[in-house]
Design a protein around this nucleic acid. Structure first.
Lengths: 145, 145
DNA sequence: TTATACCCCGGTTCTCCACTGGGGTTTGTT
DNA sequence: AACAAACCCCAGTGGAGAACCGGGGTATAA
């Protein structure tokens, strides 16, 4: 369960798609990449992963691009991170079950940590991020005046 | 902020030290390593890190070994993880401040996740682990009867 | 003096991240 | 039909870190 650059990029891309969700028109990799300052060839791979994970769908050919596969409020951040990080299980988590009592105890703590991270990520959807974005946008305009 | 194998080993080692804390005699790497099933040369490195981090102190020479630097209830799991993982900041966290509004939003979420992980790890001390261990120990004995 | 411990440094293999690049395929437009 | 715009797949690269192994040095008790 990482919070790597990959996940951040994925979030940004999906948020970009969520912002244009009502239009119903696909957005291109290049667009998103320049808008969100992400290396485009890298973003391409991430979007492919998200597509295989069923979070976005793509349209090929000219005027093609990517669209959210679901409504923004039906996509939790947990789904995104799990899709992109691919259920990493570092720390020899599942493999090699704990032999000593002590290691069982430690694993329980690890489990608790993982659980709380999950619940944080699960309580937010793309819609929430979009709303936060809009709020912040408004704030910036206010300051500008 | 990782939950790698390293951290698990460190926890186990410190827990092993905590269990013998009242004796006041140092425990050797080899002892701990065989008891907790950790490769000893690797454990050596981790204990060195913990020593530099002020969590354990060492006595050299024959009859030497390692001791907890503080009482078990004064060592939080967060300290251990931070000492061993060395304040990792993956995801380009601190470096390269967010340029877009969207990335600022995502960073806030990241921050929240990190915060909750911290608070979970901070609420436990080595003493707590020791007590959990003892409780589980008792349970196993009960089952055996 | 010797055996026992820690101490320090270095190297290895592996995996993953964050990219970059080449070439192929689908599709709308002219 | 030709073309360009997009996605698609696959491959490679450089660096970092994890999880080790090993050698040789140094302090200390017996």
């Amino acid at each position: 369960m990482e919070l790597s650059c990959k996940s951040e990029y994925a979030m940004l891309a999906l948020l970009a798609l969520a912002n244009h969700y009502t239009q119903g028109e696909p957005r291109q990799i290049r667009q998103i990449a320049t808008e969100q300052q992400i290396p485009d060839r890298y973003l391409e791979q991430l979007l492919a992963t998200l597509r295989r994970g069923g979070l976005v769908r793509s349209e090929r050919g000219a005027k093609g691009g990517y669209l959210l596969a679901r409504e923004p409020w039906k996509v939790t951040l947990l789904e995104i991170v799990e899709c992109i990080e691919g259920l990493k299980t570092r720390s020899s988590a599942t493999k090699s079950s704990p032999k000593t009592i002590e290691s069982a105890i430690v694993r329980e703590i690890w489990q608790e940590v993982r659980q709380t991270t999950h619940s944080v990520l699960q309580k937010y959807t793309l819609q929430d991020l979009k709303e936060q974005r809009d709020a912040k946008q408004q704030l910036n305009i206010m300051y500008y005046i």
